[in-house]
Design a protein around this nucleic acid. Structure first.
Lengths: 197, 197
DNA sequence: TCGAGAGCTGTAACAGTGTTATCACGACGA
DNA sequence: TCGTCGTGATAACACTGTTACAGCTCTCGA
C-alpha cells in the first residue's frame, strides 16, 4: 500500500532528524555530517538527499523544531493576573532554553552550521516567536503597567535584549569577569523599567 | 641580512591577512579557504601554516583586528561635555560598524568560520572593548545622569542590547516587518532610560 | 672560492566533507 | 512469468584543511 510506504518513508525521515538532533546536542555542529546522521539513523546517505534534498534540509528541520520548542518553553509559564511577572518568567524560560540547548540555539541564531542559510519561510516562522511575546506586552500595556506603544515593536526590543545577553554569554562561557546571570536579570529589568508607564 | 628576511616574512604574513580580510568582505566566510587566501596573496598554502599555524591563525588575526577596529570606531565620536550624547554616538558607531563590516562582525560574534574557536586570549581582548564603554557610563554616572552602579556591569547590559539588535538584524535582513533601525534606536534609548538616575 | 649543511617553500598526497552518478535489487502490471 | 519502473546502497567526484616530501636557496666554514 502506498500509505504504508509513505509511513515508512516518514519513519526514516523522522529517524534522520532525530539522529541529527542527538548528534547536534551531544557532539556539536561540527559532528553534524551527512554520513554521521545517516549511520546514526541506520540508513544510507542517499536518504538524506531523497527526503530532504541535502544536508541543509535536515538542518532546516532542526531550525524549525528549535523555534517551536522555544515558543513552547516561553509559553510554559502560563498567564496570570500579573502581566509583568508573566513576562519575567517568560524571560527566564528563554535563558533556560538557550543554556540547555546551546548548540541548537547557535544553529538558530549564530549560523553554527556552515553554509546553512535558513529559507525565507523558516525565518518568517522564527520571527513569529515574537507574536506570543507581543501579546504579553500588549496585556501589560492594557493593564496600564507599560507605556502604550506598538506591541510588535516593543517585542523586538525585548527580544533583542534577551538574545543579546545570551549570545554574548554563550560566546564567553565562564572564565570571564562578567556575571551573565545577573546581566540577564538586570538587562531585562532595565528594559522593562524603560518601557514602564 | 636577517632583518630583511624577517621583514619579508612579515610582508608575506600581512599580505595573507589582508587577502583574507578582502575575501571575507567581498565573498563571505565560505570563500575563506586556505588555498584562496594563499592565491590572493600570491603565496603558497604552506605560508599559512609556517606563519600562522593553520587557517585558524589567520582567522584569529581578523578577529583581533575586528575588535580593534570596532573599538576605534566607538571612540571616534570623541568626548564632549554631554556624556549621554557621547553614548548615543557611540551606539550609532557600533551599528554602523556591524552593518559596514557584517561578515567580519559575524566572525567576531557568530562563529561564521566553521571550527574556529577564538583563543582565551583573543576573547579577553574582545571583552576589553567593554572598557571604553564602561568609562563613558562611569562619566555619565559621575555627572549624576545615570544611577550609580558598577560601570562594567552596566557596560555589559548596554553592549548586550546593542549586540542583540544587530545580531537579529543581520540574521533577518530586509523583507521583514521589523524596522531594525528604529528598534536599535529605541532599544538603546529604553535601556538608557532604565539606567537613568 | 668552493662545498657541505640546514632551513624554508612549493608540490603532491592524505583524510575528511557534501554531492552525484551508477548499478543492482525489489515490486508492480500485463 | 516476464518486462518495466523506481527506489536505494555503493562508489566516485570536487572540494576542504592539513601534512609529508623533495628541491631550492642561503649561510657558514675551510
Amino acid at each position: 500500500m502506498s500509505r504504508t510506504t509513505v509511513t515508512t518513508l516518514d519513519e526514516v525521515g523522522q529517524a534522520l532528524v532525530q539522529a541529527a538532533s542527538d548528534l547536534l546536542a551531544t557532539d556539536g555542529a561540527a559532528a553534524l555530517t551527512v554520513r554521521a546522521i545517516a549511520t546514526a539513523a541506520g540508513a544510507s546517505t542517499m536518504n538524506v538527499y531523497s527526503r530532504f534534498g541535502g544536508k541543509d534540509g535536515v538542518v532546516e528541520q532542526l531550525y524549525l523544531q528549535g523555534f517551536e520548542l522555544l515558543a513552547t518553553e516561553m509559553r510554559s509559564g502560563g498567564i496570570t493576573a500579573d502581566p509583568l511577572a508573566d513576562l519575567q518568567r517568560c524571560g527566564q524560560a528563554y535563558r533556560r532554553f538557550a543554556l540547555q540547548h546551546s548548540t541548537l540555539y547557535a544553529v538558530m541564531f549564530s549560523r553554527a552550521v556552515p553554509d546553512y542559510e535558513p529559507t525565507a519561510k523558516a525565518k518568517a516562522f522564527g520571527l513569529r516567536t515574537l507574536d506570543d511575546l507581543a501579546d504579553r506586552l500588549q496585556r501589560a500595556m492594557d493593564a496600564g503597567l507599560l507605556r502604550p506603544i506598538d506591541a510588535d515593536h516593543a517585542a523586538a526590543i525585548v527580544w533583542s535584549t534577551c538574545h543579546g545577553v545570551m549570545s554574548l554569554e554563550l560566546a564567553h562561557p565562564e572564565g570571564t569577569p562578567v556575571d551573565w546571570e545577573r546581566v540577564f536579570a538586570d538587562a531585562t529589568a532595565t528594559v522593562m523599567k524603560g518601557l514602564a508607564a
